[in-house]
Nucleic acid binder design. Sequence first.
DNA 1: GGGTTGCTTATTTTT
DNA 2: TAAGCAACCC
Length: 665
Amino acid sequence: MVDIKKELNDKQYLAAAKLKGPLLIIAGAGSGKTRMITYRIAHMLDNGIHQSNILALTFTNKAAREMEERVKSLTSKKLTNLTVSTFHAFGVQILKESITNIGYSENFSIYDQTDKMSAIKESARELNISPDVLDIYEVANLFSSIKTKRDIWNDNNISFQPLYNEYQEYLVNHNAVDFDDLIVLPVKLFVENPDILKGYQLKYQYIMVDEFQDTSLTQYNLISQLAMKNRNICVVGDDDQSIYSWRGANYQNIIKFETDFPELNEIKLEQNYRSTENILAAANSLISNNTNRKEKELWTGIGQGKSIEIFYPENESNEADFISEMIKSFHQSEKLKYHDFGVLIRTNNLSAIIENSFLAENIPYKVSGGQSFFQRKEIKDIIAYLRILNNPDDDINFLRILNMPRRGLGKATLLKIREIALEKECSLHAAATELRWNGDSPLSDKIQSSLQEFIDMIQDYREMLEDEDINKTKMIRDLIETINYWGYLVIEHQKNEKLAKWKYKNIGIFIELFEKWEKNPDNKDKDLGTYLNRITLLTRDDDEDGDNGQVNLMTIHASKGLEFEYVFLAGVENNIIPHARSIEENPDNIEEERRLFYVAITRAKQKLFMTSCKTRKIRFEIVDTGPSPFLEEIPKELISFHTPVANVKDEEALDYFEQMKSKFN
DNA sequence: GGGTTGCTTATTTTT
DNA sequence: TAAGCAACCC
Ligand SMILES: Nc1ncnc2c1ncn2[C@@H]1O[C@H](COP(=O)(O)OP(=O)(O)OP(=O)(O)O)[C@@H](O)[C@H]1O
């Protein structure tokens, strides 16, 4: 039994012990919301609630994994039927079980952002719309908003409606879903099939949602449908930490929740267990500049702590070196482990230079967030093959592999295949198969036999995939050999053999990861499609485990819910935070940028450092930058400002204080 | 008709 | 800096 009374404060205990009925917890950063949920689950299990009746939804895969691990270790149970997952992963699970009820088949493909844009381009082609008149990125965003009901057709966008319909049809025809569908389709499934909904309501009798402020309207619809019957739903969040509005997150859901579940209990958590007074005061002062907040108290018993420090490096490489130096010296002097440090950045492109500096200084680090390992081109190439084996109707991936590696099947061949596909209303793969059998083929002998070889190869591997006795890891290895991907890489990167080798090494890592999954005894569903769908949802670092002595480098978005003893916030400059693009899009976004800053500050337990460069290289130019205006919103007495540090590398001989002195003289 | 060279352009955050 | 695309060349 877990003694939750001992491990939680009174308020937390109240929330964790109340297992029935709707529960709303809105509380500030570090007030132990996630901890409460974790113990609440353990408490449920101790009280005889069956693990399979519990559903806990978190925001990131990493958060899900951590919560699950924590519950397992608290209860010392194996818990293979406990569902702790992200909304999207949960959606995939439902679709996997029930998608045939809404006109798709089980081997559906998930299209990520890139695939989605390709699919839009393809749809445009079918409607004879030239893709260059479209801003595909914009269009993709519009379609996402339409699909999730964040936007409706109006005079400005109605011209895209035919394309939208075509795109939708394209997805259905090719048995593919996009990220939005992962939430929208389950909702549709439930609306159209009350019996199926009933089944899920019976299964998931106890629901918990962490980071509720960052759920979207459709996500809310999904869980409210599930919870409607049993009404055992506990949501936890902080409106001040809502930082995903650009993806449809809407903290108005809190108000919706209050109306939909009027009998709810609201519990406030007001003690912060994470940060020092100084850090908390800075965060509170900053965020008070936002309007429309839910008022919250937040205090800490941890003590005043040390002051926040701001440094002004000359440029971004000095900034990176400075951070490295600081981390190194604290690592030695303060008995801190490397994993006690978090280095937070607003945009991914700031990471490269900091990584380089860590490498040069031999500081172990890991990067999370940003492009996933599985989004890398070389990995996506291999995945495309596997997708086709799993779902041959998947045209987007068929297009990707048709002439990769080059096998002479280029524009002209594709045109022929397209003609047949159009005529027979079938997928490209089916059309190509047709063409292959065609006696009086319009293709040259050489092309014809190349096509034949290609189609036969797919067929062979599809048979191997079906065969339960065949080890799939070996099959993938074989496949990569057969297509001679290494040869392809060598040709593609003739002038850069190192790059080719590196990419091939990544392929090796991919195979190892797959093997680990295939061999995992806890893994009940060894379907390749399941694996592929799972990995499309992962972000960088999601698949690694533990924080074994590595500095954590990540975007602020990715740091949500985490904490570090020492936090370095880099690039605290105007136009970075708040980001120029964000403000450009809509000046009101300043509030979300401020929340972002708030999230960043509140990750720190003991100490917060910020750096603001005087100049920064943006693309090719060096531009003068100014400090972030948010710094003005933090009381001066909480901060030690350090006069701009000179170039550390050039003036290593100069003691730091000497530099300061010389500045004053 | 396919491959290759040379030019352009990067979108802020991510499931 | 590198990938992605279009015009060109073989
Ligand atoms: N009652 C408690 N006693 C001791 N430590 C606690 C207690 N509650 C929370 N903590 C600790 O405080 C820290 C913050 O908790 P937690 O991450 O659960 O907060 P949170 O409200 O989810 O934060 P955020 O809003 O940033 O996601 C953790 O290290 C946690 O272990």
